[in-house]
Protein backbone atom coordinates (compact mmCIF):
# COMPACT_ATOMS: atom_id res chain seq x y z
CA UNK A 1 0.00 0.00 0.00
CA UNK A 2 1.57 3.18 -1.22
CA UNK A 3 -0.60 5.34 1.02
CA UNK A 4 1.10 4.01 4.12
CA UNK A 5 4.33 5.56 2.83
CA UNK A 6 2.60 8.83 2.15
CA UNK A 7 3.82 11.59 4.49
CA UNK A 8 0.63 13.64 4.31
CA UNK A 9 -1.35 10.61 5.48
CA UNK A 10 0.68 10.30 8.68
CA UNK A 11 0.96 14.04 9.11
CA UNK A 12 -2.81 14.40 9.01
CA UNK A 13 -3.33 11.70 11.64
CA UNK A 14 -0.59 13.13 13.86
CA UNK A 15 -2.10 16.61 13.67
CA UNK A 16 -5.55 15.34 14.59
CA UNK A 17 -4.21 13.22 17.44
CA UNK A 18 -2.07 16.12 18.63
CA UNK A 19 -4.99 18.53 18.75
CA UNK A 20 -7.20 15.92 20.41
CA UNK A 21 -4.68 15.42 23.24
CA UNK A 22 -4.59 19.11 24.20
CA UNK A 23 -7.73 19.12 26.38
CA UNK A 24 -6.48 16.02 28.20
CA UNK A 25 -3.05 17.50 28.86
CA UNK A 26 -4.57 20.73 30.07
CA UNK A 27 -7.20 18.88 32.08
CA UNK A 28 -9.82 21.21 30.66
CA UNK A 29 -13.18 19.43 30.79
CA UNK A 30 -15.26 21.96 28.90
CA UNK A 31 -12.65 22.03 26.16
CA UNK A 32 -12.78 18.24 26.09
CA UNK A 33 -16.56 18.34 25.72
CA UNK A 34 -16.24 20.68 22.74
CA UNK A 35 -13.58 18.48 21.17
CA UNK A 36 -15.72 15.38 21.76
CA UNK A 37 -18.58 16.93 19.85
CA UNK A 38 -16.43 18.24 17.02
CA UNK A 39 -14.74 14.86 16.60
CA UNK A 40 -18.17 13.27 16.36
CA UNK A 41 -19.11 15.72 13.61
CA UNK A 42 -15.83 14.99 11.84
CA UNK A 43 -16.76 11.30 11.87
CA UNK A 44 -20.28 11.96 10.58
CA UNK A 45 -19.06 14.29 7.85
CA UNK A 46 -16.17 12.05 6.76
CA UNK A 47 -18.39 8.97 6.57
CA UNK A 48 -21.00 10.86 4.59
CA UNK A 49 -18.22 11.98 2.28
CA UNK A 50 -17.15 8.41 1.59
CA UNK A 51 -20.49 7.57 0.02
CA UNK A 52 -21.38 11.05 -1.21
CA UNK A 53 -18.06 12.65 -2.14
CA UNK A 54 -16.34 9.61 -3.60
CA UNK A 55 -19.29 7.71 -5.05
CA UNK A 56 -21.68 10.56 -5.79
CA UNK A 57 -24.65 9.14 -3.87
CA UNK A 58 -26.20 11.79 -1.68
CA UNK A 59 -27.20 10.01 1.49
CA UNK A 60 -29.54 12.52 3.10
CA UNK A 61 -30.60 10.25 5.90
CA UNK A 62 -27.19 8.89 6.85
CA UNK A 63 -27.93 9.67 10.48
CA UNK A 64 -30.04 6.50 10.53
CA UNK A 65 -26.81 4.55 11.12
CA UNK A 66 -25.76 6.83 13.96
CA UNK A 67 -29.08 6.09 15.63
CA UNK A 68 -29.02 2.39 14.83
CA UNK A 69 -25.53 1.93 16.27
CA UNK A 70 -26.49 3.99 19.28
CA UNK A 71 -29.64 1.99 19.96
CA UNK A 72 -28.09 -1.45 19.48
CA UNK A 73 -25.13 -0.65 21.72
CA UNK A 74 -27.30 1.05 24.32
CA UNK A 75 -29.66 -1.90 24.46
CA UNK A 76 -26.79 -4.38 24.89
CA UNK A 77 -25.18 -2.28 27.64
CA UNK A 78 -28.41 -1.63 29.49
CA UNK A 79 -30.09 -5.01 29.21
CA UNK A 80 -27.14 -7.42 29.17
CA UNK A 81 -24.50 -5.26 30.86
CA UNK A 82 -22.16 -5.72 27.92
CA UNK A 83 -18.90 -3.83 28.07
CA UNK A 84 -19.10 -0.52 26.25
CA UNK A 85 -16.37 -1.27 23.70
CA UNK A 86 -17.84 -4.60 22.70
CA UNK A 87 -21.37 -3.17 22.55
CA UNK A 88 -20.16 -0.31 20.37
CA UNK A 89 -18.45 -2.69 17.96
CA UNK A 90 -21.55 -4.86 17.71
CA UNK A 91 -23.58 -1.68 17.15
CA UNK A 92 -21.24 -0.81 14.29
CA UNK A 93 -21.54 -4.24 12.74
CA UNK A 94 -25.33 -4.20 13.10
CA UNK A 95 -25.59 -0.84 11.34
CA UNK A 96 -23.27 -2.04 8.59
CA UNK A 97 -25.42 -5.10 8.14
CA UNK A 98 -28.50 -2.92 7.88
CA UNK A 99 -26.70 -0.72 5.35
CA UNK A 100 -25.68 -3.79 3.37
CA UNK A 101 -29.25 -5.05 3.16
CA UNK A 102 -30.79 -1.67 2.42
CA UNK A 103 -27.95 -0.72 0.10
CA UNK A 104 -28.58 -3.68 -2.14
CA UNK A 105 -32.06 -2.31 -2.68
CA UNK A 106 -31.77 1.47 -2.68
CA UNK A 107 -28.40 1.94 -4.39
CA UNK A 108 -30.09 0.92 -7.63
CA UNK A 109 -31.87 4.26 -7.46
CA UNK A 110 -30.12 7.25 -8.90
CA UNK A 111 -29.90 10.93 -8.08
CA UNK A 112 -32.88 12.50 -6.39
CA UNK A 113 -34.62 9.13 -5.98
CA UNK A 114 -31.75 7.78 -3.91
CA UNK A 115 -31.63 10.94 -1.79
CA UNK A 116 -35.36 10.69 -1.11
CA UNK A 117 -35.16 7.00 -0.27
CA UNK A 118 -32.52 7.66 2.39
CA UNK A 119 -34.80 10.23 3.98
CA UNK A 120 -37.59 7.66 3.88
CA UNK A 121 -35.41 5.03 5.52
CA UNK A 122 -34.45 7.32 8.35
CA UNK A 123 -38.04 8.39 8.95
CA UNK A 124 -39.29 4.81 8.79
CA UNK A 125 -36.71 3.61 11.29
CA UNK A 126 -37.35 6.53 13.59
CA UNK A 127 -41.10 5.98 13.48
CA UNK A 128 -40.58 2.27 14.08
CA UNK A 129 -38.26 2.76 17.04
CA UNK A 130 -40.65 5.33 18.54
CA UNK A 131 -43.29 2.61 18.63
CA UNK A 132 -41.13 -0.34 19.53
CA UNK A 133 -41.56 -0.93 23.25
CA UNK A 134 -38.55 -3.22 23.80
CA UNK A 135 -36.38 -0.21 22.88
CA UNK A 136 -38.37 2.09 25.10
CA UNK A 137 -40.71 3.44 22.42
CA UNK A 138 -40.98 7.20 22.19
CA UNK A 139 -39.51 7.64 25.68
CA UNK A 140 -36.30 5.84 24.85
CA UNK A 141 -33.93 4.20 27.31
CA UNK A 142 -31.68 5.47 30.10
CA UNK A 143 -28.91 4.09 32.29
CA UNK A 144 -29.04 3.67 36.03
CA UNK A 145 -26.33 5.62 37.85
CA UNK A 146 -24.70 2.36 38.84
CA UNK A 147 -24.15 1.62 35.16
CA UNK A 148 -20.96 3.70 35.09
CA UNK A 149 -19.49 1.98 38.14
CA UNK A 150 -17.95 -0.67 35.92
CA UNK A 151 -15.94 2.13 34.29
CA UNK A 152 -14.88 3.81 37.52
CA UNK A 153 -17.78 6.26 37.72
CA UNK A 154 -19.40 8.75 35.35
CA UNK A 155 -16.33 10.99 35.27
CA UNK A 156 -14.04 8.24 34.07
CA UNK A 157 -16.66 6.98 31.67
CA UNK A 158 -16.70 10.45 30.08
CA UNK A 159 -12.94 10.27 29.73
CA UNK A 160 -13.18 6.80 28.20
CA UNK A 161 -15.84 7.96 25.75
CA UNK A 162 -13.54 10.80 24.71
CA UNK A 163 -10.63 8.45 24.03
CA UNK A 164 -12.94 6.18 22.07
CA UNK A 165 -14.14 9.09 19.97
CA UNK A 166 -10.55 10.17 19.24
CA UNK A 167 -9.58 6.67 18.14
CA UNK A 168 -12.71 6.36 16.02
CA UNK A 169 -12.08 9.72 14.38
CA UNK A 170 -8.54 8.66 13.49
CA UNK A 171 -9.84 5.39 12.10
CA UNK A 172 -12.48 7.14 10.03
CA UNK A 173 -10.00 9.60 8.59
CA UNK A 174 -7.51 6.83 7.87
CA UNK A 175 -10.21 4.80 6.13
CA UNK A 176 -11.30 7.79 4.12
CA UNK A 177 -7.71 8.46 3.05
CA UNK A 178 -6.94 4.83 2.22
CA UNK A 179 -10.11 4.46 0.17
CA UNK A 180 -9.52 7.66 -1.73
CA UNK A 181 -5.97 6.71 -2.74
CA UNK A 182 -6.70 3.08 -3.58
CA UNK A 183 -7.76 1.28 -6.70
CA UNK A 184 -11.14 0.82 -5.04
CA UNK A 185 -11.44 4.57 -4.53
CA UNK A 186 -10.52 5.23 -8.13
CA UNK A 187 -13.33 2.92 -9.15
CA UNK A 188 -15.74 4.81 -6.90
CA UNK A 189 -14.80 8.14 -8.39
CA UNK A 190 -15.23 6.68 -11.83
CA UNK A 191 -18.76 5.62 -10.83
CA UNK A 192 -19.37 9.12 -9.52
CA UNK A 193 -18.37 10.68 -12.82
CA UNK A 194 -20.19 8.27 -15.14
CA UNK A 195 -21.67 5.03 -13.93
CA UNK A 196 -22.49 3.61 -17.35
CA UNK A 197 -19.08 4.37 -18.80
CA UNK A 198 -17.50 2.81 -15.69
CA UNK A 199 -19.32 -0.45 -16.30
CA UNK A 200 -17.89 -0.60 -19.79
CA UNK A 201 -14.44 -0.02 -18.29
CA UNK A 202 -14.82 -3.16 -16.18
CA UNK A 203 -16.24 -1.80 -12.95
CA UNK A 204 -19.09 -3.61 -11.20
CA UNK A 205 -20.86 -0.60 -9.72
CA UNK A 206 -23.53 -2.35 -7.67
CA UNK A 207 -20.99 -4.37 -5.73
CA UNK A 208 -18.64 -1.46 -5.14
CA UNK A 209 -21.43 0.87 -4.07
CA UNK A 210 -22.83 -1.61 -1.58
CA UNK A 211 -19.40 -2.21 -0.04
CA UNK A 212 -18.85 1.53 0.24
CA UNK A 213 -22.24 2.16 1.75
CA UNK A 214 -21.62 -0.61 4.28
CA UNK A 215 -18.29 0.93 5.28
CA UNK A 216 -19.77 4.42 5.48
CA UNK A 217 -22.42 3.15 7.94
CA UNK A 218 -19.90 1.58 10.32
CA UNK A 219 -18.21 4.70 11.68
CA UNK A 220 -21.30 6.81 12.39
CA UNK A 221 -22.85 3.81 14.14
CA UNK A 222 -19.94 3.53 16.56
CA UNK A 223 -19.99 7.29 17.03
CA UNK A 224 -23.65 6.92 17.99
CA UNK A 225 -22.77 4.16 20.46
CA UNK A 226 -20.11 6.34 22.09
CA UNK A 227 -22.26 9.43 22.13
CA UNK A 228 -25.24 7.79 23.80
CA UNK A 229 -23.05 5.80 26.18
CA UNK A 230 -21.72 9.07 27.50
CA UNK A 231 -25.14 10.69 27.34
CA UNK A 232 -26.73 7.94 29.45
CA UNK A 233 -30.01 8.47 27.65
CA UNK A 234 -31.20 7.62 24.16
CA UNK A 235 -34.41 8.83 22.50
CA UNK A 236 -35.69 8.40 18.94
CA UNK A 237 -35.67 12.14 18.22
CA UNK A 238 -32.00 12.91 18.85
CA UNK A 239 -30.88 9.50 17.56
CA UNK A 240 -32.50 9.84 14.14
CA UNK A 241 -32.45 13.60 13.70
CA UNK A 242 -32.63 14.27 9.98
CA UNK A 243 -31.36 17.78 10.55
CA UNK A 244 -28.03 16.41 11.78
CA UNK A 245 -27.63 14.40 8.57
CA UNK A 246 -28.13 17.49 6.54
CA UNK A 247 -25.67 19.37 8.71
CA UNK A 248 -23.11 16.70 7.89
CA UNK A 249 -23.75 17.31 4.19
CA UNK A 250 -23.26 21.02 4.76
CA UNK A 251 -19.92 20.34 6.46
CA UNK A 252 -18.80 18.20 3.54
CA UNK A 253 -19.74 20.95 1.09
CA UNK A 254 -18.14 23.63 3.22
CA UNK A 255 -14.82 21.82 3.42
CA UNK A 256 -14.77 20.19 0.03
CA UNK A 257 -16.74 17.41 -1.57
CA UNK A 258 -14.66 14.32 -2.34
CA UNK A 259 -11.53 15.39 -0.44
CA UNK A 260 -10.15 13.73 2.70
CA UNK A 261 -9.44 16.87 4.69
CA UNK A 262 -12.48 18.80 3.48
CA UNK A 263 -15.03 17.17 5.81
CA UNK A 264 -12.65 17.67 8.76
CA UNK A 265 -12.16 21.34 7.99
CA UNK A 266 -15.87 21.69 7.27
CA UNK A 267 -16.89 20.13 10.58
CA UNK A 268 -14.53 22.29 12.62
CA UNK A 269 -15.41 25.53 10.84
CA UNK A 270 -19.15 24.83 10.94
CA UNK A 271 -19.21 23.96 14.61
CA UNK A 272 -16.95 26.82 15.67
CA UNK A 273 -19.00 29.24 13.67
CA UNK A 274 -22.24 27.96 15.10
CA UNK A 275 -20.77 28.16 18.56
CA UNK A 276 -19.81 31.75 17.91
CA UNK A 277 -23.21 32.66 16.51
CA UNK A 278 -25.10 31.07 19.38
CA UNK A 279 -23.03 32.76 22.08
CA UNK A 280 -22.89 36.12 20.35
CA UNK A 281 -25.68 38.37 21.59
CA UNK A 282 -26.51 39.98 18.28
CA UNK A 283 -26.46 36.78 16.30
CA UNK A 284 -27.71 34.18 18.74
CA UNK A 285 -31.29 34.34 17.54
CA UNK A 286 -30.25 34.42 13.95
CA UNK A 287 -27.77 31.57 13.94
CA UNK A 288 -29.91 29.37 11.71
CA UNK A 289 -30.51 32.22 9.29
CA UNK A 290 -26.82 33.01 9.11
CA UNK A 291 -25.82 29.37 8.73
CA UNK A 292 -28.35 29.06 5.90
CA UNK A 293 -27.07 32.18 4.18
CA UNK A 294 -23.52 30.91 4.49
CA UNK A 295 -24.45 27.57 2.98
CA UNK A 296 -26.16 29.30 0.08
CA UNK A 297 -23.15 31.49 -0.59
CA UNK A 298 -20.88 28.44 -0.65
CA UNK A 299 -23.17 26.45 -2.91
CA UNK A 300 -23.51 29.36 -5.32
CA UNK A 301 -20.00 30.73 -5.36
CA UNK A 302 -17.49 28.21 -3.95
CA UNK A 303 -19.02 24.86 -4.89
CA UNK A 304 -15.69 23.07 -4.47
CA UNK A 305 -15.56 24.00 -0.78
CA UNK A 306 -12.59 25.45 1.13
CA UNK A 307 -10.14 22.60 0.58
CA UNK A 308 -11.44 21.93 -2.91
CA UNK A 309 -10.95 25.56 -3.83
CA UNK A 310 -7.38 25.56 -2.53
CA UNK A 311 -6.64 22.40 -4.46
CA UNK A 312 -8.03 23.82 -7.68
CA UNK A 313 -6.31 27.13 -7.23
CA UNK A 314 -2.83 26.03 -6.20
CA UNK A 315 -1.16 23.04 -7.83
CA UNK A 316 1.30 22.79 -4.93
CA UNK A 317 -1.56 22.27 -2.45
CA UNK A 318 -2.76 19.27 -4.44
CA UNK A 319 0.42 17.40 -3.62
CA UNK A 320 0.09 17.41 0.16
CA UNK A 321 -3.56 18.19 0.87
CA UNK A 322 -5.86 15.35 -0.05
Amino acid sequence: MKTLKNISFWLLLVVIAGVAVVPIVQGNVSMREDAFFILMLVILASSTNIIMGYTGYVSFGHIVYFGTGGYVAFYLMQTFQWHFVLAALVGGVAASLLAFLLGNAVLRLRGAYFALSTIGINEAVRAFVSNFEPLGGSIGMFFNFSMYDAYGGAKNAGQLAYYAMVVLALMTIAASFLIKKSKFGLGLMSIREDQDASMVLGINPSRMKVITYTISAFFPAIAGAIFFFKNGLIEPGPAFELHRSVEALVMVMLGGFGTVTGPIVGAVVYERLRGFLITNETFSNFHLVIAGAMLLLIVLFVPAGLVGWLRLRFAAVRRFLE
Partner: peptide, 10 residues
Amino acid sequence: ENVTVGACFG
Protein backbone atom coordinates in the same frame (compact mmCIF):
# COMPACT_ATOMS: atom_id res chain seq x y z
CA GLU B 1 -6.57 8.88 -13.66
CA ASN B 2 -8.99 8.29 -16.51
CA VAL B 3 -6.57 6.00 -18.26
CA THR B 4 -5.58 4.35 -14.98
CA VAL B 5 -9.22 3.38 -14.47
CA GLY B 6 -9.08 1.52 -17.77
CA ALA B 7 -5.90 -0.33 -16.77
CA CYS B 8 -7.10 -1.08 -13.23
CA PHE B 9 -10.40 -2.68 -14.11
CA GLY B 10 -9.69 -4.03 -17.58
